[in-house]
C-alpha cells in the first residue's frame, strides 16, 4: 500500500513538474513550469524577499556585497535577519551583474527579473524560462500577485492578502473618513538641498492608498504622473500633508533622529516651516520595512498608521 502511495505521489510530482503553462511576461507570452521548483531571483529586495514570504522554491538570488563582508540579501536581512546560508539559497552575484554560469549551474526552471535588469535576456532565456516583471506597468500589489502567480504560490499570497485586507478594513472602521486625511512620504536630500516627494513609495503607498488616505494637493501637483518628484528645499513651506512620513536606514548607520539631522543640516528651524512637523505629525519610519515588497513590511506600515493616525487623529486633530 505504502509503495502504491509513494508511486502515486511520484507520478503526481512528475506530472506537475512536466506541466507547463503560458503567462504574459514583459517580452511577450512565455511557457513556464506549472509548479516551479528551482527559481533564481535577480533582484533581492523586490523579488527574493517576496518569494521568501510566499515560500516559493528559490535556489539562487543576487545580493549586495561590501568589501570583505559576507554578501547579504537586501530586505531579507533587514526584515528577517536571514542570509543566503540560512535560506539554503546560492549567491549568484551582485545585483545588476549576475554570474550567468553560476545561474546555469543551479539548473533553474524559472528565472525572475525586472525590465531594468542589465543581464542579457537572450542568455537568461537559454538557461530557463525567464519571467520579466514590467516595473512601469504594474503597481506594487499587482507585481506581488504576479510573483505569486508565476511561482504557483497564489494560495499563500491569498491567505496573507486576506489577513492584510482585514487589517486595512479595521483601520478604515476606526476613522470617520480616511479621504479627509492627507498622508505623504517625503525625504530630505541634503547633498542636493532638495526634498523627494513620493507618490509611489512601495509598501507605504500601497497601505495609504488601500486605507483611502488622500495625497496632499501640493504633492499631486508636483509629482504629476510620475512615481516621485524633487523639489528645492526653498519650497519646504509648501509641503501640505496632514501626516508627513520620512524614512531612516539603520543598515547605513542611521538612527531614528537621522532624518531630523538631515533637515537641520540644510536649514535650522525647518520644523516651524512645515505644518505637519509643527503640529507633531511628522513621523520617520524604518526604510527597508516601509518600502520592501513584503507582507511584513505592509504590516509594519499598518501598525504605524494605526498608532500615529487612527489612534491620535480623532483625539487631537479632528476639529
Amino acid at each position: 500500500m505504502k509503495s502504491i502511495i509513494a508511486l502515486f505521489l511520484t507520478l503526481v510530482t512528475a506530472i506537475s513538474l512536466a506541466q507547463t503553462r503560458t503567462v504574459a511576461s514583459y517580452q511577450g507570452e512565455i511557457e513556464i513550469p506549472a509548479n516551479p521548483q528551482r527559481i533564481v531571483a535577480l533582484l533581492d529586495h523586490m523579488i527574493m524577499l517576496p518569494l521568501y514570504e510566499l515560500d516559493a522554491n528559490v535556489v539562487g538570488s543576487v545580493g549586495r556585497q561590501w568589501e570583505g563582508q559576507e554578501p547579504y540579501i537586501r530586505g531579507v536581512r533587514a526584515l528577517y535577519q536571514q542570509n543566503f546560508a540560512d535560506l539554503g539559497v546560492e549567491f549568484v552575484g551582485t545585483a545588476f551583474s549576475a554570474d550567468i554560469e553560476k545561474i546555469t549551474a543551479l539548473n533553474p526552471d524559472l528565472i525572475i527579473t525586472y525590465n531594468f535588469g542589465s543581464e542579457s535576456l537572450e542568455q537568461l532565456e537559454a538557461i530557463a524560462p525567464t519571467y520579466v516583471i514590467d516595473a512601469d506597468k504594474y503597481s506594487y500589489m499587482e507585481r506581488f500577485e504576479l510573483l505569486a502567480e508565476v511561482t504557483n504560490t497564489t494560495d499563500v499570497f491569498n491567505a496573507k492578502k486576506a489577513h492584510y485586507d482585514e487589517r486595512v478594513a479595521e483601520i478604515q472602521a476606526w476613522l470617520t473618513n480616511p479621504a479627509d486625511i492627507s498622508v505623504a512620504m517625503a525625504m530630505p536630500r541634503p547633498d542636493s538641498a532638495e526634498i523627494t516627494l513620493y507618490r509611489d513609495y512601495g509598501a507605504f503607498s500601497q497601505v495609504a492608498n488601500d486605507i483611502g488616505f488622500s495625497l496632499p494637493a501640493f504633492f499631486a501637483e508636483q509629482i504629476g504622473e510620475s512615481a516621485s518628484a524633487k523639489i528645492s528645499i526653498e519650497d519646504l513651506a509648501s509641503i501640505d500633508a496632514d501626516y508627513l512620513f520620512d524614512t531612516f536606514e539603520p543598515n547605513r548607520g542611521d538612527t531614528a533622529t537621522s532624518t531630523i539631522e538631515r533637515y537641520n543640516s540644510m536649514i535650522p528651524n525647518w520644523c516651524e516651516a512645515v505644518e505637519a512637523c509643527r503640529e507633531g505629525r511628522y513621523i520617520p519610519l524604518r526604510r527597508t520595512d516601509s518600502f520592501s515588497m513584503s507582507f511584513k513590511a505592509l504590516d509594519y506600515v499598518l501598525a504605524q498608521f494605526a498608532t500615529h493616525i487612527a489612534a491620535r487623529h480623532e483625539l487631537y486633530f479632528n476639529e
Binding site: D191, S192, E194
Partner: peptide
Amino acid sequence: HLLNQDTFESLRGWLVGSLSGRDLQ
C-alpha cells in the same frame, strides 16, 4: 560603485560637481 550601490547613490550628485546642499559649517 558597481560593488556598492549605496555609495553611487549618495555620491553621484557630488561627482558631477554641485554647489547645492552645502552648509556654512
